Simulated assay, not measured.
Amino acid sequence: MPPSMPCPSIRIPIELLTQSSFSQFGTVISNPAHSPLPASQHTSPSPKIISANQGTALKILDVTHPSNLYSLAPSKKPAKAVMNMFVCSPRELRPHEPSESMPSSWGDLDFDEDDYGNNDRALFDVTILERHPFTTQTFIPMGLSGAERHTQYLVIVAPTLPASASRRHTGRPPPYPTPEVKKRGNSIKDIFARARPSPFTNEAAPPPPQFSRLHPSARPKGPGLPDLKNLRAFVATGDQAVTYGAGTWHAPMVVIGQRPIDFVVCQFANGVGIEDCQEVELVPGRNTEEGVVVMVDSEPSGKVIVKAGPGAVMAKL
């Protein structure tokens, strides 16, 4: 059984999946020409595009940021690139019920029932989150059209709490294997070695941090537990793949609709269970009504309606 943590009673609205809205958690892979947002709402830099295949194709460079951080793992066991397939069936949703749950931090929204008209609302209970502390993980859907109205998938993610807050809220250290940090010596040579310019090298400045060259979403997140009050939920179209940054807390893939979705999943792994994947079970706290819930509003056709962020409410995915 995975370790558990108490969770508040909170309801999360659904956002549109775009690179700008998802940037702290990872990257979104899609053809920029198929973006669901108008050009005026784009905040991410334009990707670099070059001609390829004797002029018959466009090559879009650096669409995601895979990273292998297993050098930080306690076992020091090297990892290899792996590609797996997940066949994800549609999730069971429960009928909407009024609740005293607090609203999400992402959007101080008015969830008045009169606003829904002929639209339907169902609820998805988030009961477990996982992370891959030393690797990015890319999910690529297969066979799902970007114009599909009856089947979509949700991407549910959370920031990482500071380790001190994690210990305070659970009474135990976070479930994250951190490498031992060797203490620096205090000899005269050690003290002078840390000076700049160094008397032992030609360096005039300290070298850049180990992870400064990585995309911010791919850098280590630290050992903390998920920040549930800032959990977010995005709906993805069939022509979008997603990369979770290393250590990003996320729910297992959530398919909404009528049929399964096949995902090709690319990541690194070294075969050490606690280093490849860590899970935490979300258990409603004492006197908590329902725990963490994503509100899934949909049109009569089944298409999910965006309720928060850019393109909210009126967006037609």
Results as ranks from 00 to 15, higher is better:
1 M>S: 14
4 S>Y: 02
8 P>E: 05
9 S>G: 14
11 R>Y: 02
13 P>L: 04
13 P>Q: 03
15 E>A: 12
17 L>Q: 04
19 Q>H: 07
21 S>Y: 00
29 I>R: 09
33 A>K: 13
35 S>L: 04
35 S>H: 13
40 S>N: 09
43 T>G: 01
45 P>S: 12
49 I>M: 09
50 I>Y: 07
54 Q>D: 12
59 K>H: 06
59 K>N: 04
60 I>N: 05
64 T>N: 14
65 H>V: 03
65 H>P: 02
65 H>L: 02
67 S>W: 00
71 S>H: 15
72 L>R: 14
74 P>W: 09
75 S>G: 10
79 A>T: 04
79 A>E: 03
79 A>W: 00
81 A>P: 00
84 N>H: 08
84 N>I: 10
87 V>S: 12
90 P>L: 09
92 E>R: 09
95 P>E: 13
103 P>F: 03
105 S>K: 09
106 W>Y: 15
106 W>S: 14
107 G>E: 07
107 G>H: 11
108 D>Y: 10
108 D>E: 12
110 D>K: 03
112 D>E: 10
113 E>I: 13
115 D>V: 10
116 Y>E: 11
117 G>N: 11
118 N>G: 11
122 A>K: 13
122 A>E: 13
124 F>E: 02
126 V>R: 03
127 T>R: 15
127 T>V: 11
130 E>Q: 13
131 R>W: 05
135 T>V: 05
138 T>G: 05
145 S>Q: 07
145 S>A: 14
149 R>I: 09
150 H>Q: 14
153 Y>K: 01
158 A>R: 04
161 L>R: 03
162 P>R: 11
165 A>R: 14
165 A>N: 14
166 S>W: 04
168 R>E: 13
169 H>W: 01
172 R>C: 01
173 P>V: 00
174 P>F: 02
183 K>N: 08
187 S>G: 14
191 I>S: 09
192 F>G: 01
197 P>C: 04
200 F>T: 07
200 F>D: 09
203 E>V: 11
204 A>E: 13
205 A>E: 15
208 P>R: 06
209 P>Q: 12
209 P>S: 11
210 Q>R: 15
215 H>R: 06
218 A>C: 13
219 R>S: 07
222 G>F: 05
222 G>L: 06
224 G>N: 09
228 L>M: 06
230 N>E: 12
230 N>Q: 12
232 R>V: 06
233 A>Q: 02
233 A>M: 03
237 T>R: 15
237 T>N: 09
242 V>G: 09
242 V>T: 13
243 T>N: 10
249 W>H: 10
250 H>E: 04
251 A>Q: 10
252 P>L: 06
253 M>W: 02
253 M>T: 15
256 I>D: 04
260 P>I: 08
268 F>V: 03
268 F>P: 01
270 N>R: 06
270 N>S: 06
270 N>M: 08
271 G>A: 08
272 V>F: 02
273 G>P: 00
274 I>A: 11
276 D>C: 08
278 Q>G: 04
281 E>D: 08
285 G>N: 06
286 R>N: 11
289 E>M: 07
290 E>L: 05
291 G>F: 05
292 V>S: 03
295 M>P: 00
296 V>M: 01
298 S>I: 00
298 S>D: 00
301 S>Y: 00
302 G>A: 08
303 K>L: 11
304 V>P: 00
305 I>W: 00
306 V>E: 00
309 G>A: 02
310 P>I: 03
311 G>W: 00
312 A>M: 07
